[in-house]
Design a protein around this nucleic acid. Structure first.
Lengths: 229, 229
DNA sequence: AGGGCTACGTAAAGGTTGGGTAAAGACAAA
DNA sequence: TTTGTCTTTACCCAACCTTTACGTAGCCCT
């Protein structure tokens, strides 16, 4: 299956160079030397991905992109003058997927084209929900839920994060500073007892077993006890 | 709601600089200082996108990427030494979605993160399951109608879109930002309560059951509860 | 053993935020 | 203009995270 690239670039020499290279790499290529032609081709549904120069004789490349985004979500890679940061940032904001500074390395262009096409191909496949089980607990990341013997635990968002991190490291100690960073997303400061509270609440919701599922390692952190096999 | 970035970078100073910047830009950030911790976090489904340094103290960044690609399609942006073309090309081949040369401009990192997340949001919009039934609801995409026990619901256009997206993902959580993008076709901005209103109206039209068919997942989004079989 | 220090457990209070929804406004089509 | 629809505004509440306060358990030292 050949991927169809639309090349919108007014510099004939560069355009033909790139086109030849892309064809050699197994793409099928459409060419347009100005914005108007480019738009017509792009909207004509016969390409998979667009390479768009910002500097065009008629319509500005960014306007082409805006027009395109109003109607489709065709992936677009911008060609910009090297170092022109404004164009790049604006380009992303308008909805470009990527940019390459000119003069561009054809190999890099191909690499980026393929990365983008691969991303799209993957995303169009349905993801498998890979829940993992730890004893009587089962994590369902898609639902952001953790089930205990099939019954969903009524966890808050933060409690879910904390338990999920502990489970991922079941059997080994997670240091408090790491748990804080990974589950709460911030640094552990002195006298911050927040984490202790979440652990306390979690233990309650898991049913205060003895010995506790979540073990305290004094001076270090916490550890989820490996469930009996 | 917030997009969760995982930052795998061993240089503490750079990592904290980027982390702070990303937090300011509205991302939630998890940090890992080495490949092993990074892998665990990435596989723990705790993030939406990964920023990965190639030079790491333990595992090589490219090996982290390979390992990751073996199990998920999590979007990855590589941090590479400037000018090291080999790493870049290999990175793309292994499955990176993008790369940024170091030392990197935080604004550009944000722009690229957002471009990639936007692309993914679009691509993951699953199409209507034709005529599928969900409990007492039946979707008729041709008519843009949804029937409840054979009786058509009096839905507005937007309400139809919202409900149909929720049904297509029945049982798992749809983030507000995705729901907005998929059903309303625009980005979710701060203080925009439009979506909440449509949900509220939908619940009313579906008959305010208990527990509600459309569950709220605080801080994240909504989920249509899987009907009893 | 006992004192003193520190880390942890947890109830309760405090404060912030996200979400529900009524009602008003904006807008477009008929 | 009227009507149907989407959006904004405003207010309120409940869920939740964090802090505070006090009690307890572990650990080291003499």
């Amino acid at each position: 299956m050949q991927n169809r690239v639309l090349l919108i670039e007014d510099d004939d020499e560069l355009r033909e160079l790139l086109a030849r290279y892309l064809v050699n790499q197994g793409f099928s290529v459409r060419e347009a030397a100005n914005g108007r032609d480019g738009l017509v081709l792009a909207l004509g549904q016969d390409c998979d991905i667009v390479v768009l120069d910002i500097m065009l004789p008629d319509i500005n490349g960014l306007d082409v992109l805006r027009e395109l985004r109003g109607r489709t979500h065709l992936p677009v890679i911008l060609l910009t003058a090297r170092g022109d940061e404004t164009d790049r940032i604006v380009g992303f904001e308008v909805g470009a997927d990527d940019y390459i500074p000119k003069p561009c390395n054809p190999r890099e262009l191909v690499a980026r084209l393929q990365a983008l096409l691969r991303r799209i191909a993957w995303d169009q496949k349905t993801e498998v929900a890979d829940g993992r089980a730890y004893g009587d607990l089962a994590v369902e990341p898609g639902q952001r839920r953790i089930y205990q013997n099939g019954v969903p635990l009524e966890l808050t968002g933060t409690e879910y994060e904390v338990l999920q991190v502990l489970l991922a490291h079941a059997g080994s100690v997670v240091r408090k500073t790491d748990l804080m960073q990974w589950a709460l997303g911030r640094r552990l400061e002195a006298y911050d007892r927040t984490l202790d509270m979440h652990i306390s609440n979690l233990r309650k919701k898991l049913g205060n077993d003895h010995p506790p599922r979540i073990e305290t390692v004094r001076g270090l952190g916490y550890s989820y006890r490996i469930p009996a096999p």
